[in-house]
Design a protein around this nucleic acid. Sequence first.
DNA 1: ATGAAAGCGCTAACAC
DNA 2: GTGTTAGCGCTTTCAT
Lengths: 339, 339
Amino acid sequence: MKPTIYNVASKAGVSIATVSKVLNKTGRISEGTRRRVVEVMEEMGYQPSVIASALTGKSTFTIGMLIPDLANPFFAEVARSAEDRGHELGFNLVMCSTDNDPAKEVDYISLLKQKSVDGIILSTVTTNHSTVKDILKLNIPVALIARDMPTLAVDTVIVDDFIGGYLAAEHLIELGHRRIAVIAEDMNVMSSSERVRGYRSALEENGLEYDDALVKESDFTIQGGKLKSGELLDSIHSPTAIFACNDLLAIGAIQAARERGMQLPRDLSVVGFDNTILASIVEPPLTTVAQPMRDMGRHVIDLLIQEIRGLKNQKQRIILVPELVVRGSTSKRVHTGNQ
Amino acid sequence: MKPTIYNVASKAGVSIATVSKVLNKTGRISEGTRRRVVEVMEEMGYQPSVIASALTGKSTFTIGMLIPDLANPFFAEVARSAEDRGHELGFNLVMCSTDNDPAKEVDYISLLKQKSVDGIILSTVTTNHSTVKDILKLNIPVALIARDMPTLAVDTVIVDDFIGGYLAAEHLIELGHRRIAVIAEDMNVMSSSERVRGYRSALEENGLEYDDALVKESDFTIQGGKLKSGELLDSIHSPTAIFACNDLLAIGAIQAARERGMQLPRDLSVVGFDNTILASIVEPPLTTVAQPMRDMGRHVIDLLIQEIRGLKNQKQRIILVPELVVRGSTSKRVHTGNQ
DNA sequence: ATGAAAGCGCTAACAC
DNA sequence: GTGTTAGCGCTTTCAT
């Protein structure tokens, strides 16, 4: 049987209150008894029960993390980093993949509540903010990662998606491209629409016309990217460059081009977003807008834990700046004379 | 304030015992009161506290999962699948990335114990089995994933690594290769040594000599694979094919070959292991030995939860059969006449 | 069919 | 400095 505080107390010849005090370093206990109690604890291999402690109103030292998909390289990386930072600070993470399904989100949150997690990290796409509001209403600490809800007072860590989109488009424009398509994820999600807005802004600043026909929406899979890119490439005025709103979509674009016998980057330039491990591995290596995934994971945890500890009155929004990583999937536009 | 069982009880005009009974569907309660209690629970948005329930000896419905690295595509995929299956059965997963560091393992396990997780899934490389033994001694359910300890009575889900290595080598031999190198992970780990053993067995069955100089050990990173492959390719009798013990290493091999101006698969055939998403994305697409990651994740959870529920007296070892997926990184050996 | 009460392991007044 | 004790929210005999 696992030893309890009672076992330790009786073996050390003190009361459980004393043991509790040495455990939490609260109250005053003489150095002598402290040492003896510690000794006994080690002897017995005593480990306090977080469960029991939590029941008296203390922390559970666990955080719930809701992300679309743990197997997605971007989120896996962010999660790993968050896990590391949490561990440093004594917190464990419960991972919940929602597939962007509101029902799953609600379900997971309900479970996490029942388990009295100390806080929740959220990367949700719900258009209505009810999920987040519900959590806030319950007064449980939340932090958003990679997803913005500017109208809500909630800790947030994101990348400046507008700038990201801008950088991508600007890079392509500088390379001489004029027909630049974009494959977006769900445009109802801010991070996605912001990227497109940045793209559009770069276009306009450079005197290029924004063309709706060049903007496609897709789910966030390679397949989706391939499909939509295919449509673009098969259209009358096919683009000479594609800005895909994440690396997966960009890889889909590359595959679609390949299937059509195109040479990259000669016949088509492709820019991705995220800079996941995939970007460095595809052929050609993907030019992409890098999100600092490790930093992001670290920051959310720090924000959330500050919140949990009540060290903060003010909500904070950390907006990181993305960086363009130029690799081999983009190059100067080749003038074919057909436009 | 979150409603408790007391609030529900008083509002429904019954005792907490009654509420508890409708909650757990135990004992006998009249349909009338049952309905009324349920009604009140919904009205108040009551959710039982898992913490409190756990303190009375019931489950916490959470499982700890120790893997080397959550950001590694193989483990991310397995974890995702395990998470899904766990969720179906009402369990949450706490993810712990150990980096194969025994100290971290011990640390995480200690934390998980304090939190009274219902069981632990382990993918450890510790040579001495003390970690596992410790857990078993504490009588907490464990299951091994992707790592074998045949001498221990513990639930396990693995792929037949021997066959995997055999398939890889056999494929290359059939393509006419005779100098086939192998890049292994830590040979102290069974999964790794088994793959090499399978490779060796295929060699010998086909009358090829096993050459120690063609076997390199590496950490499990792209960099490592690249480095070791480089050494092989730069050696006097450089191989015409490389079997890398995981996709990351294989990608390193591809990169090393590229750097040396080699054409794949013409100048070098490469076989990987795992069939992660990376394998389908590199260029050329990687021929690889596929591990059924989704099935594996699902199976460990099922094994572990059966164990948790005490539905099983007998430990079980599920050994899945890997499959060779042939893609573009392997081809017939080109006879250059130099051997 | 329902309730009273003990107890799970711990924390936090409060008393001595 | 140290101990007593009342909870925390729930489960579970055991009466009734």
